[in-house]
Nucleic acid binder design. Sequence first.
DNA 1: GCTTGCAGTGAAACGCGTTCCATAGTTTAA
DNA 2: TTAAACTATGGAACGCGTTTCACTGCAAGC
Lengths: 323, 323
Amino acid sequence: MTNIRDLAHEANVSVTTVSRVLNDHPYVAKEKRRAVKAAIEKLGYIRNQTAVHLSIGQTKTIGVMLPFVDHPYHAAILQGIAKSAFEKTYRFLTWQTNYVEEHERTVLRALAQREVDGLIIVSHSLPTADILSYEQYGPIVFCELHEAVSAVYINHYSAFRKGLMELQRLGHTNIGICLGRSDSTNSLARKQAYHDFVEQASNDWVYEQTLTIEDGARVAARWLKQKQRPSAILTASDHVAAGLILELRKQGYRIPEDLSVIGFDGSDLAEVLSMTTISIPYDVIGQQAFSLVTRQDAATVRQIEIPSTLISGLTAQNVHPVH
Amino acid sequence: MTNIRDLAHEANVSVTTVSRVLNDHPYVAKEKRRAVKAAIEKLGYIRNQTAVHLSIGQTKTIGVMLPFVDHPYHAAILQGIAKSAFEKTYRFLTWQTNYVEEHERTVLRALAQREVDGLIIVSHSLPTADILSYEQYGPIVFCELHEAVSAVYINHYSAFRKGLMELQRLGHTNIGICLGRSDSTNSLARKQAYHDFVEQASNDWVYEQTLTIEDGARVAARWLKQKQRPSAILTASDHVAAGLILELRKQGYRIPEDLSVIGFDGSDLAEVLSMTTISIPYDVIGQQAFSLVTRQDAATVRQIEIPSTLISGLTAQNVHPVH
DNA sequence: GCTTGCAGTGAAACGCGTTCCATAGTTTAA
DNA sequence: TTAAACTATGGAACGCGTTTCACTGCAAGC
């Protein structure tokens, strides 16, 4: 593999001059610049990026920690990161953690070992403080809101409020909610919104640990068994909503007549089912997170709220619709 | 930042010995090993991976080129890669190309610049030969079948055959197909299967350039306008099938009574719509591709076929069903 | 005419871990 | 007893691009 010294020899200049040519530094005479370029051509030289990285002390790479790369909304965040990174000629490494703490530690270790210049934490299960102890090695940006950390986040409290208000506007008073991971920051905010805005809030109508389509079907089963049923359910993901809707339809119930359902995410799934959902621009989250983690004053805590939008579909309607 | 030389000094040994300790080399006396570990502890030393990479001439990182990270089946492949990479303590860089050739070139350049040890090409638009000219810089594995390249692939000819046979088994003779990108390897194989196995194959019933849900709706519109309509359509993606199904239902048509539809991918979408589909284990593709690109004799061309499975749903049925 | 100041250039140090090779003390096998 | 085979250890080179610093010419400023 030919290197910068071979080029210097071939072009009869110093390695410094070769480096200047490679980096478009102005202080190089036309002659020499031409000679170096000729040498590059002749020897088929290609820059070794690893050497550049070692030399400049940066990898121009950021790391992304997320639980699952193939969940639609994580993938959408990734998409936003990919787009921004490409534009800024940055690279990104992805780690799928499955919420396993030891895996998350691997990611943090990678930051400490300078494999990446900074980290975007899409979601995590390690205590936030543990993660922050690695901030000394590089900027860390979260996609969930925590105190005193840089974050690009959805205000789940107000997003959920939006859904709850919509259901009340439609005349519902008996409203239930589906939540994801029990004690995640997001779930807590959602539960708070539920209790703050729904008069008849009841723990019987809080369906926890719902993440997948199957979980949605499980909610349906539980709903069917209840004597006191909510007339509307606000979910925390389109997947859960889809599972719920489809299972109930399979059992002969009508959506929204028998149960109004609102999804969350604004995914393809919601579109396909003409679902009422709360849409989140996940790609924008990725883009903003990238720009935060690569900004100059990355040490400064900065928080960016991303707006959510209620999209009306056909799965939520008035309690007593006019026929 | 403390480095290996600081450690050597602190522990009163040579850098060689420190390196040996770091790499668990056996030829180190217990005493010295302990001394080095104490120094590591005391100085808070953390290995600089970039230096390791430069030194060993490898990055233990592979690159992944794909058009879109947020399309379900690409994400599923990514998931498989992520899993395997994690297990083997490899990293992976992802590039989203949007099928833009210049972007694809960026990825190839990254291989040449030794940013990655090898490349997994999930899908591409550059000529295969152009890509192969970079094989001198590291192993390249495709997720589509080409001659003389290492690949992990779906036999789209036989997969499509499976779908077409199923439709014929149900009594259909007027069968149409939806294809993705016009001249992609996959589309050609599918078209071939169509002409080989469907007696009444007609170009009027080949709907090209269908990739998204919206494209599926467009197919519906075109189908509606045709005087001679197929009674069944085999698509190349669940998304397209979903768009087609939902648009027709919206127009008052019944699926499968008025049109049998078979999807492709085995995605969540298919499950949600109880769609008949041809399921592909995309995560396995990712895993196998990873294992090919990192194997010792990566230079040897190796091809692995991944099996597809027909999953019966409710969107395809007999032409004249018995009521 | 003399001081600044900028263009142009290169030697050498730097970032940092790995590894080749030489050296020396021990064992083990013959 | 002696040669062969280990075990231990470190100096120095290596992988390779960037950057600091010193230095030479020249031209502009006063």
